[in-house]
Amino acid sequence: MSAPRVSLRPTMLSDLDFVVSVEQDSANAPFITLWERTQHEGAIRFPDSRHFIVEDEAAAAIGFVILQGCRNPHRSVELKRIVLAPKGQGLGRACVRQLKKLAFTQLGAHRFWLDVKALNTRAQHLYQSEGFVEEGRLRESVRLSGAVDGYDSLIVMAMLDREYQARVALGQEPA
């Protein structure tokens, strides 16, 4: 079976109902900090951000991603958000690979980084397997919402351009 393919297209204001619904879905909400619709509008309009709809091979919307720091003078691009509706189909991996390529080849990133909630072990394993390195933890920095009261830590992970290029040379990144 071949790896799934995903594509990214710029988010339009008309996509925001979908964006908000997939973000608030009970399968996704525990792992992200929910944004107001106006925050998404800002990310679409702000030149330092890139807001994309993720589509499957049939061009159906399956999620969204947000990059920030796209004009950062230090060339440090943040994967602010990745939210996909289908789980366990390899779509997250396909999306992360496209985002790495975009960050390093089109945006000229020196560093591509993210933070992930400690309770999101599935995402942590994905990022590690895709070459991201844990840089540190922000202990109990986000409040849990819902039925559970307490805090979760954020794990900061990153990849440098030379690490990405080494993965490309080893054939670990798709062409």
Score class of each variant (00 low, 15 high):
L84C: 06
Q98E: 15
Q106R: 15
V116H: 01
L79V: 05
S76A: 14
R75F: 10
E135P: 03
N28M: 00
N72M: 09
R9M: 09
T38P: 00
F52T: 02
E78D: 09
K117G: 08
N72S: 15
V6C: 12
A175N: 12
W35R: 09
T105W: 04
R162S: 14
R167N: 09
L160S: 08
R5W: 00
C95M: 10
G90K: 01
S2W: 08
V22A: 03
T38M: 04
F112H: 02
D149N: 11
D161N: 12
R81I: 01
D15A: 05
T33I: 01
H51G: 05
A118E: 15
Q128A: 14
F104R: 02
L144C: 13
I66D: 09
L102Y: 13
L34S: 14
F112D: 06
V77Q: 00
L126Q: 02
G146Y: 06
R167F: 08
Q106I: 05
A123R: 05
R45C: 12
Q24R: 15
R137E: 11
S7E: 11
H51Y: 10
A61S: 15
C70N: 11
S153I: 02
R71D: 14
L16F: 08
A61H: 06
R71H: 14
P4E: 09
I44M: 10
S49G: 11
H125M: 09
P73N: 11
D161C: 09
E78P: 05
P30H: 01
T11V: 09
R122D: 10
G131M: 01
G88P: 02
R167Y: 04
R139T: 09
R75C: 12
E55Y: 03
D115Y: 05
L107T: 08
P47G: 04
A118W: 05
I82Y: 03
H74P: 02
V133G: 02
R111Q: 08
L160N: 10
K101V: 01
R93L: 02
A3R: 12
E78I: 01
I53H: 03
T33A: 12
T121I: 09
V168W: 09
G131Y: 05
T105I: 06
I66L: 13
Q24I: 00
W35I: 04
S145D: 12
G90M: 00
E173A: 02
V54C: 08
T121R: 12
E41R: 12
R37P: 08
V116G: 05
G108W: 04
G146N: 11
A103C: 11
P174F: 07
L13W: 10
Q89S: 12
A103F: 05
R139I: 06
R37K: 15
G108F: 08
L107H: 13
H110D: 11
L154Y: 13
G150S: 01
V6N: 04
E78S: 04
F18C: 04
G171V: 00
S7V: 00
E134C: 13
M1E: 08
I66M: 12
A147E: 14
T121L: 11
V54I: 14
A60V: 14
